[in-house]
Amino acid sequence: MNKNTKWVASPYLLWMVVFVIVPLVLIGVFAFTVNVPYDLEGNRLTEEQASELKLAYEGTDEEIPVVYKTVFSWNNIIAVSQYLPVLLNSAWLALIATLICLVIGYPIAYLMSRVNPSYQRLIQMLIMLPMWMNFLLRTYAWMTLLEKNGWINRILGLVGIGPFDMINTQGAVVLGMIYNYLPFMILPLYSVMLKIQNTTIEAAQDLGAGNIRVFTKVVIPLSMPGIASGITMVFVPAVSTFIISRMLGGGTNMLIGDLIDLQFLGNAYNPNLGAAISLVLMAFILLCMSITNQLDNGDEEMEGKML
């Protein structure tokens, strides 16, 4: 079967070139080029000169002697420098969200893996169920909860506390990230913990390990692959989100995703700059994933030698 079936993949390979490789190359091309005005003799003009020329020729029948050419430039990449704080801020918020997800999710995943199987399935379903509601709607519902006149403040008001400013803060953005991506942390952790046999834990206990030592020396090391994939699955979407910050952060806490959106379909059209920011974001994600891959000892790559 070997030799013949290799060619079954060829339609896919073609597809892959067109829909995976070419788009990424295009991002690179956009990131390293700019559109600059030239006059008809081929001399480079400044934006001001071009504007003046255009104004001068406006309303006349003569053609405006300005042509735009796409040329190689470092400018976009250099311009991204000033937005690095935005990237770092996004990374910081995403990191907090990821850690909180880990802290909340780890015990849940552990408890889930230790109750009897029919309960396990029930809990698993209950965790997946909210994901069937559109994520924009769920985030919107958080607005209703967090607003100044929202549900939480009203309920607190009944007891005489508050009102608190909860919405339009960085905290609200982090909360939105935790809420939307928590299941992505719990599920990989849970599937790893299922593989930890009770007998392993009992063996450790029999050999004299206390609860804390069992946890740090047995449970945590064995669940490392789950921790790594959970962190990746929460961190990557959280760092690049652009809608949560807009809805819960009120647009005052711009994240790197908002910045990219702003350059493509938003209020400051500049796809070259947008592509450059995307490129930097990709490099950053590559770095983060290399680090998290390190956590699971390299045994469980996507290639999946274990399977």
């Binding site: 788009p23 295009l26 996507m302």
Partner: peptide
């Protein structure tokens, strides 16, 4: 092959738009 899902969604979206 895994690039479209390993990359941030927004980058995949933008790159397809450019394509």
């Amino acid at each position: 092959s895994y690039l479209p899902i390993m990359n941030p969604e927004i980058v995949t979206g933008v790159s397809l738009l450019l394509l």
